[in-house]
């Protein structure tokens, strides 16, 4: 409980930092006055229309990525499972790009998150089918690489064929993710799906605890494995799909965060899930503050920072697994 409270405090601190850091270089007092009391025209605009949605999305995207990483690791009992690495993010990016380029998203705004979460859902189903219920690390990663590469190639193809000259330059955004210049519309578009997805994933805690004892033991304890599987598929699709639709594919959050919180919370999934949610929010908020400090006038992609932290961590995990398997 104490850990959860401190993580929550950290989220709030980083949320405040995200509101107060930006290229406009506003004073703390002015910013807060504008945010809460609506004083000062231009500052209100900056705070309420530019920084608030950015900070909210940072927390939301991080939370769902951390949570879905923890849920997938718990369900697959595999420390390498993560939406980015196994191709779920890139598949939902493909869904989002299809909705945008076919014009569906322009006619019907909900088409964007719906298409993205369909992409994510299809990828989760494929992964589960390819890697099997007890999928070993190798099968999981190989299936993930294949799906990731295919979805990435199709995304690039769609963007290259677009009649819009800017579309082709957006491949980087869909692969790396960014929160620059998002608005409250994006927050409202993504929030309902993220809340529903998170609720499904958080409810997996107890069944996942039972699953650590093995599938037979879990089944004998009354866990409905089919139901659990669908809970994971739908929950991840909703959460990751909505997150990618508005912020692109931010990698490695779901991989790193559960491993960081496990030493603090113990290995039980029911405890790791909420802590990963808060930890994920911290990681993305911190990364988004950092991109604005490192390169205030450029749209440095969020995924660049998370990958700089995440990729070495991933290598370290593989190294440890190699030792365990040998």
């Amino acid at each position: 409980m104490k850990v959860l409270l401190s993580l929550l405090l950290l989220v709030l601190l980083l949320f405040a930092a995200s509101l107060l850091v930006g290229p406009a270089g506003l004073g703390v007092g002015d910013s807060l006055a504008a945010l809460f009391r609506g004083e000062g025209d231009a500052v209100v605009l900056v705070m309420r229309e530019i920084r608030l949605p950015r900070a909210l999305l940072g927390a939301m995207v991080g939370a769902v990525l951390g949570l879905s990483g923890a849920a997938m690791q718990g369900y697959l009992r595999n420390p390498l499972a993560e939406p980015g690495i196994i191709g779920i993010s890139s598949s939902s990016a493909l869904g989002a790009v299809l909705a945008l380029q076919t014009g569906a998203a322009a006619m019907f705004p909900l088409a964007l998150p719906l298409s993205a979460l369909s992409g994510a859902g299809i990828a989760v189903l494929l992964i589960l089918a390819l890697a099997g219920p007890r999928g070993g690390a190798m099968a999981l990663i190989l299936a993930g690489i294949a799906i990731s590469a295919l979805a990435g190639a199709l995304t690039s193809l769609v963007l290259n064929l677009s009649s819009n000259p800017f579309a082709a330059m957006e491949i980087v955004f869909w692969m790396m993710g960014s929160l620059a210049d998002r608005s409250m519309q994006h927050v409202w578009l993504a929030a309902p799906f993220m809340v529903a997805g998170s609720a499904l994933l958080l409810a997996m805690g107890r069944p996942l605890d039972a699953l650590t004892l093995g599938e037979d033991a879990a089944a004998s304890m009354g866990v409905n494995l089919t139901r659990l599987r669908w809970q994971l598929v739908i929950g991840t699709a909703l959460a990751v799909g909505a997150s990618v639709a508005v912020a692109g594919a931010v990698g490695f959050v779901g991989l790193v965060v559960p491993h960081l919180v496990r030493p603090l919370m113990g290995a039980r999934p029911s405890r790791v899930l909420p802590a990963s949610m808060l930890g994920g929010a911290c990681m993305v908020l911190a990364a988004d503050v950092a991109v604005r400090i490192v390169a205030p006038d450029q749209d440095l992609k969020l995924g660049v920072l998370t990958a700089l932290i995440g990729a070495p961590f991933f290598l370290h995990l593989i190294w440890r697994l190699r030792g365990a398997e040998a």
Binding site: L45, E49, Q101, G103, A105, N164, F166, A167
Partner: peptide
Amino acid sequence: YPGASRAEEVLTHPALRAVQDN
């Protein structure tokens, strides 16, 4: 341009619309 792009989304951002209105 015809077709969608995220690059151009900034041109419909509520904050930019407010700048235009002012």
